[in-house]
Amino acid sequence: MHIRGISRDLLDLLLSIGKEQHPHEFAGVLREEEGVIRELNLLPGTTSNEHSARLFLDMMPLDTHIAGSAHSHPNGVMIPSDADLSFFPRVGGRFHCIVGFPYEAGDWRFFSADGTPVDLEVVE
């Protein structure tokens, strides 16, 4: 699957959820449709606190359209932590989004599973 971008609506939703959950983290699974990341799946059993969010991976959908993950960093540091680098490959997909405080328009980044920054177009 070739992914060319993320929808503006989904990106706005991720930033809004980050702001709403602050100072706790949130985490979810990203899904693509026709080459655009358009959906966020919040898995049952997910827990979060001020330092982490944990997905219950047994609740992952069996889906060939999983694009990666999204989660927040309430501290505003939008660089994958060691825990993130362990988490990304377990979720699967090639695109992992971090949104950070203060959750404004530019407070997001995408990374590959190994932590390399990835540029994605925002699709209206």
Rank of each mutant, 00 (worst) to 15 (best):
D119A: 15
S7D: 13
N49L: 06
A27I: 01
S16T: 14
V123P: 03
H2C: 00
F101I: 00
I79P: 00
P44G: 05
E39T: 13
G18T: 08
G93F: 12
A70Y: 06
V99S: 02
N49S: 15
V36H: 04
S52E: 15
E39G: 00
D63Q: 03
E20I: 00
H96P: 06
F111M: 10
S7Q: 11
S7F: 09
G28L: 06
M59I: 00
I79F: 04
G28D: 03
D9G: 13
I37F: 12
A53P: 07
N75V: 01
G45R: 04
E124A: 15
D58C: 00
P74W: 09
R38W: 00
A113T: 07
V91P: 10
P44D: 14
E124N: 14
V123S: 01
R4K: 15
I17F: 06
W108R: 05
R31H: 08
D107P: 11
H71C: 07
F87G: 04
P80N: 08
E32C: 08
Q21E: 13
S86Y: 02
L11N: 04
E104A: 15
I3A: 02
T46V: 14
D82K: 08
R38T: 15
R38M: 06
V123T: 09
S52N: 06
L14H: 10
N49M: 01
K19F: 11
L40S: 01
A27E: 02
P117K: 04
L85Q: 01
P61R: 13
F26L: 07
V122L: 07
H71V: 09
S69P: 04
A113K: 03
S48T: 09
L10D: 07
M60T: 06
I98D: 07
